[in-house]
Design a protein around this nucleic acid. Sequence first.
DNA 1: GAATATATTGAACATGTGTACAGTAAAAAT
DNA 2: ATTTTTACTGTACACATGTTCAATATATTC
Lengths: 189, 189
Amino acid sequence: MKKDLRIIKTKESLRHSLLALLKRKPLDTITIAELCREANINRGTFYLHYREVHEVFKEYLEVIVEDLKQSYEEPYYKTNYRIQNIDADMIKIFHHVKKYKDFYQIIFDEHIPMMYYYLLFDTVRSFMKNSIEEHFELDDGIQLDYLISYQTNAILGILIEWHRQGYETSIQELNQYFMTILSVKLPRS
Amino acid sequence: MKKDLRIIKTKESLRHSLLALLKRKPLDTITIAELCREANINRGTFYLHYREVHEVFKEYLEVIVEDLKQSYEEPYYKTNYRIQNIDADMIKIFHHVKKYKDFYQIIFDEHIPMMYYYLLFDTVRSFMKNSIEEHFELDDGIQLDYLISYQTNAILGILIEWHRQGYETSIQELNQYFMTILSVKLPRS
DNA sequence: GAATATATTGAACATGTGTACAGTAAAAAT
DNA sequence: ATTTTTACTGTACACATGTTCAATATATTC
């Protein structure tokens, strides 16, 4: 039971047309009708596969996030989860975001639904989960999910800041900041 | 030069009607036309003040976030920025979110635009900025903005996790997790 | 209280949304 | 190659969107 060729053709046409439109105008101004005209697809057909323009974009984003996953799963030297490894991991994320800057600018836009942020969050979170579960020494009485979400979103906080500063900070600088942050300790009582 | 009473009346009517509608259906299904019918406001009038339903909700949220600010500015014993103070600060945020749980469930919904998240982010960030600037010993060569955004979003990560677990974790437990997280140290090489 | 300013209304228009359905085209299955 | 299945089209409908404009209502100002 293979996927119907017509469906593949339709979806590819929509994805392709969305990219074309994105070069001319922002995502949240692109209507379904407009996208269908561009793609020469009947509007009714659109609703057979998607409910909103965002879902088409999300499929694109999933491909991009797949790229992030790939680069993460590259076998590189992981001895212990020490600073060097965190270093390497973060550099990868920073490079990835820079590479697809045009997309991440859309994702972090304030008019865009949270769904894209969560897609990114869940992806990075799965890396974080592995790292933390394998390499952290945990105190009793902590629910791991909270630690993982805390750490994950902290990193996304750096990306948000990067975004807001127009991606002007270089990756080297960004990574240096990150490493410094990790070394900052809260003064304990 | 006072604000025109008619404007105040119109806006209040819209806010009030939005709340009424929110009790019956989710935010992203409420149309402008529907809101105006409920409020007995001409649809054209709506466009004189807002561009989308979200902007009405955002005004509500601003009031709520104001409540967070108020509770934060309560003068309580701040000697040094030590664990006890962080403790107290976080408890405040957790209580606040719990108090307005119905709203934060909307804010964290995946269909909702990022604007609300950023509103919360910026609010918490301003607290964080003060705390960090006053009380942290900083290494040279770090751009403070990145540290602040990192820490801020880390906390929001806990709230996201809380949200996803249906706010079932108690505030005491949540705070305990948070304190444990802060004490977790990365193993250094 | 009268004059002035302006917020609101109601109507209209082009376009978008979401859905339904019968007819057609193009796949997959035999 | 024929049959069967199903994706796509074209049309239609009720409703939503975003804007314009003259008429009206209701503030503010003097």
